[in-house]
Amino acid sequence: MFKSFYGLTLNPFDKSLAVKHAFNSKDHKNMLDRLNYLQKTRGVGVFTASPGMGKTYALRCFADTLNPNIAELSYICLSTVSINEFYRQLCLELGLEPLSRKADMFKAIQERVRYLLKEKKKTIMIAVDECQYLDTRILRDLKMLTNQDYDSSDYFALVLVGLPHVNNILAKPVHEALAQRVVVHYNCEGLTKEETTDYVYTRIEAAGGARSIIEEPAIHAISGYSNGAPRIINSVMTNALLLGAQLQKKTIDSEVVLAATNNLILG
């Protein structure tokens, strides 16, 4: 409904927007830089952020840049599973047939990543999203999976992505050995006020719209409400566009944004 009213070719705040339209915020750039470093060095990387800050989207953008002949990102998002179920997921991601015994799957996974790196010159990156939900035994086994050739080589990169309290989990004595293997650590802080303004305008322009669709003070109101979380910004803007079209307002102002945020709060 609002697309034709505002002259947009698509919803610029839909989460399925092509990665070519990704906004290069400080957080986004820092995550990509560190993921690229991790691809080259391997080892363990930890990326944390509050919900909706764009960490998973950054992973998707990074995966899109990889040359499949030299690197591959395996993505696991179901972290609330048993240790055997986790091993089965990992086997499937690596093109292996899941086995009945954990020890056999452990050995097969280690041999697979070693073969791909040594023989095929291909780096495997295993990304585990929502890692704050991982069972302690899984985290312990992930540490052991990285231990090859008497702990002298890293044959794959492990990317742990989750909420900030992941840091508290890794700080526990039981996970000290895993924490010591972390070579990259980054916490996303969200978009600044200036970045939020650029983000909104960039997305509108990507959909063929004009900046005049929304007033800058209205964007500042969104920035304050969202605390820089792109997911919340997207929700508010989508609601604001819907309301603006219903009210026949060619320019979205702070009043429309306030109504849009109230709609979200009330559900």
Rank of each mutant, 00 (worst) to 15 (best):
N239V: 07
D104M: 12
Y150P: 04
T261A: 06
V81L: 10
L32V: 09
K120I: 12
F2H: 07
G162Q: 05
E72D: 11
F156Q: 05
I109V: 15
A63M: 08
M125H: 09
K15A: 13
A22P: 07
R114I: 15
L99N: 09
A103W: 10
I265W: 08
L178F: 09
N36F: 13
H175W: 08
L145R: 01
L145I: 06
Q248D: 12
K3N: 06
A221C: 12
G209Y: 04
Q148V: 15
S153H: 14
R42Q: 04
V46K: 01
R114Q: 14
I219V: 13
A179G: 07
G162V: 05
L96N: 03
S100K: 14
E255D: 15
P217E: 05
R42I: 03
T136A: 14
A210F: 12
A240P: 09
T251F: 02
T196H: 06
T146D: 08
T202P: 03
Y186F: 09
T80Y: 06
L242H: 13
A18G: 11
T56V: 01
N227T: 08
Y186D: 03
F23M: 02
E119C: 08
I214A: 02
E72Y: 12
E255K: 14
T65R: 11
L32D: 02
D64S: 14
